[in-house]
């Protein structure tokens, strides 16, 4: 599933190091001034759209966060109320299943497809890369999928019953299966395949030729050359996939509105519901909780997957 735009939670600082500024001490005064002139826009951007909202959110989550009137400090009351709310726990469960299953089912496939596509003739590769560039409207394809999933007239029901001869199924209205069917389109829409293809193209041909002469089979070449060389881009894509899928909102909201019975209501969707109830303090507290969870996931990931200095 494509990474949806983050809604309420402040952006998580990514692990990407800032553009390395030359060591300030060694620079003459004019150069240092120029360095700051180049870096300042990025810092201001980060501050106003990153750190400032994050700090404000943390502050607001400790207050009653009224639209107007007196701001009252309420300590951890908002958090206590959220932790007591079974729907919060449920939304976190849904989010974890959604993100985990989504990454499991959709993350590896584009990598494999990119590798297989690179075996095609050069002209076909260019066509494929162009196709990946074709802008697809997220909303349009979502509506399209709503029709596909329609239980009476949808094409998937037709395939299930008429082609495969299976009993009719309740795709999006089955509590056990709804998350799978929400993820299913993502299996067919090839994520960041373009990045993978460009990364594959940058591997020197002689590596594959040497491997071939040394007796490597097709799969061994993929396992010992392609995948290790793609490791940095795969690692980066996985971080973005984790961050993005933990904040899943637009697609499930349009498809199911969180139903049936909250079986597909993610944390961000629940946050949106709380906001609509006017509970701003609770909503910001939930966003801070989600931020903390994502932050922990990213830190654990960075600990487990170290940078490859040989990339």
């Amino acid at each position: 599933m494509a990474v949806t735009a983050p809604v309420a939670p402040p952006p998580v600082p990514t692990a990407e190091p800032a553009a390395a500024a030359p060591t300030a001490a060694a620079q003459p005064a004019v150069r240092r001034w120029q360095v700051w002139a180049f870096v300042l826009p990025a810092i201001l951007f980060q501050f106003f759209w990153g750190w400032y909202p994050m700090l404000v959110a943390i502050f607001l989550s400790l207050t009653n966060a009224p639209i107007r009137g007196q701001v009252t400090f309420v300590g951890f009351n908002n958090y206590a109320r959220l932790l007591a709310d079974p729907l919060v726990a449920m939304s976190f469960r849904v989010t974890f299943v959604y993100a985990g299953l989504g990454i499991l089912l959709t993350f590896g496939i584009p990598i494999l497809i990119a590798i297989l596509l690179m075996e095609m003739p050069p002209r076909l590769i260019r066509v494929m890369m162009l196709l990946w560039f074709v802008p697809l409207s997220g909303i349009a394809s979502t509506i399209f999928w709503q029709y596909m999933y329609n239980e009476q007239f949808g094409i998937l029901q037709f395939i299930a019953t008429e082609v495969l001869g299976l009993p009719p199924r309740a795709f999006l209205s089955n509590e056990r299966w709804v998350i799978f069917w929400l993820i299913f389109p993502g299996i067919l829409m090839f994520g960041p395949g373009l990045y993978y293809m460009t990364s594959l193209q940058s591997i020197p041909r002689s590596y594959f030729e040497a491997a071939e002469i040394e007796g490597a089979s097709f799969w061994r070449k993929i396992w010992t050359i392609s995948l290790p060389r793609m490791r940095p881009i795969i690692s980066m894509s996985l971080i973005f996939a984790i961050i993005g899928s933990m904040q899943e909102f637009a697609f499930p909201d349009l498809m199911t509105r969180g139903g049936p019975n909250g079986a597909s209501r993610t944390v961000v969707m629940y946050m949106f519901d709380i906001l609509n109830d006017g509970r701003y303090g609770d909503a910001t507290a939930l966003s801070v909780m989600l931020f903390a969870v994502i932050m922990v996931l990213v830190l654990v990931y960075r600990r487990l997957v170290t940078d490859d200095p040989d990339a």
């Binding site: 020197p204 002689s206 590596y207 030729e209 040497a210 491997a211 002469i213 010992t224 050359i225 290790p228 060389r229 490791r231 490859d308 040989d310 990339a311």
Partner: peptide, 11 residues
């Protein structure tokens, strides 16, 4: 075969 760029696998 020995290649001009050696094709030694960096990883």
């Amino acid at each position: 075969m020995v290649f001009q760029d050696y094709a030694v696998f960096p990883h």
